[in-house]
Design a protein around this nucleic acid. Structure first.
Lengths: 189, 189
DNA sequence: GTCTATAATCGGATAGAC
DNA sequence: GTCTATCCGATTATAGAC
């Protein structure tokens, strides 16, 4: 792995753990095993490095979520697969987390990959919900875009509940609750 | 308002806006119009002041949410009132936000009011869902604790979606989506 | 490409005068 | 109770040698 790569990876870790305001160039250099001169040779500064790290994290999330959502199965099964997929719940979402960072939100450049990733996820889930409606799995009165937003919000909020309590239990409860509401069996009661 | 109060209020604002790691004693003093000596006379330091601020914010949230949840009406109406109540969506939740702060989560003392507030909210919502089940408003197979977690997660995650896109639209979509799934009319399809 | 030196400002306080 | 002085390390770089 090149020095540049190690710097990006270290930044990804620290952004996930401590956010943008909580991450210093010095900490990045120590994690990457690189000196100051090295870091400023490869990147213009903290924002530049953060942008590279955020883009890579966003790309990775898209890949991981995409694979789950493209899996075979009914709409309900794929949504269930997304909600219940293995996660490092107590670490939170490496992308969603950035929305709580004042400097990320204040910068159009830093926020863009976050916005695009979440917009893509909502869009992909809306397509799947639409398929479910078309196949008669879900009530036709449901608005796919709204349900998609609820699904993504449940996951993002699930992280908040879990971190508040220090336990993954709340995340799982929120996911189960949403799935019960979405379940063809329950809804057809 | 006393100097002590002004310090707490300034800290509340800054914690909401920038989080714990992003808030410096100097910034607090400037916002409060107080000198350093003044701040360190009233509080032992940044963690002490933050604790007072977080407790006050938690208390206020409990009051506001409690009033909405204690309102008259069916279970669905009260949940709907909670989800759709007026909020400063793009600022996010002043309590939930703290769960993304590494130093808050690392401190049992600072995390406690956050944990208690969210646990209380989940409990109160679970009671309301249970009432809805008892009255036949909701499917009896629903697990009230799980649905309550989904409701709180939808709100907390709604803030994330809204801040990612820079628009309140996503929050509203997530709330509508969950309400549609919860709606006696839709569920009875 | 990487290293060390230097620097201005901030962070988070303590000490003591008033 | 509030103010000013002082302190030491961290932050976020830039400059120039190697």
């Amino acid at each position: 792995m090149s020095t540049s790569d190690r710097l990006i990876e270290a930044t990804r870790e620290l952004l996930w753990e401590r956010g943008y305001v909580g991450t210093s160039p010095k900490a990045i250099q120590q994690h990457a095993g690189a000196g100051q001169g090295s870091m400023y040779h490869h990147f213009a500064g903290k924002p530049d490095l953060a942008l590279a790290a955020i883009r890579r994290t966003a790309q990775e999330l898209r890949g991981t979520a995409g694979r789950v959502l493209d899996a075979p199965g009914s709409a309900y099964e794929r949504i269930s697969g997304y909600l219940l997929r293995e996660r490092d719940v107590l670490r939170g979402c490496p992308v969603g987390r950035l929305t709580m960072d004042p400097e990320v939100v204040a910068s159009d450049e830093l926020r863009a990959p976050v916005d695009e990733t979440i917009a893509w996820l909502r869009g992909r889930l809306a397509e799947i919900v639409q398929e479910g409606v078309d196949r008669g799995e879900f009530d036709a009165r449901l608005v796919p875009e709204d349900i998609a937003a609820s699904i993504v919000a449940t996951v993002q909020g699930g992280y908040v509940l879990a971190r508040a309590s220090g336990s993954t239990e709340a995340f799982d409860a929120a996911a189960r609750g949403l799935l019960a509401l979405l379940s063809p069996r329950t809804a057809a009661s």
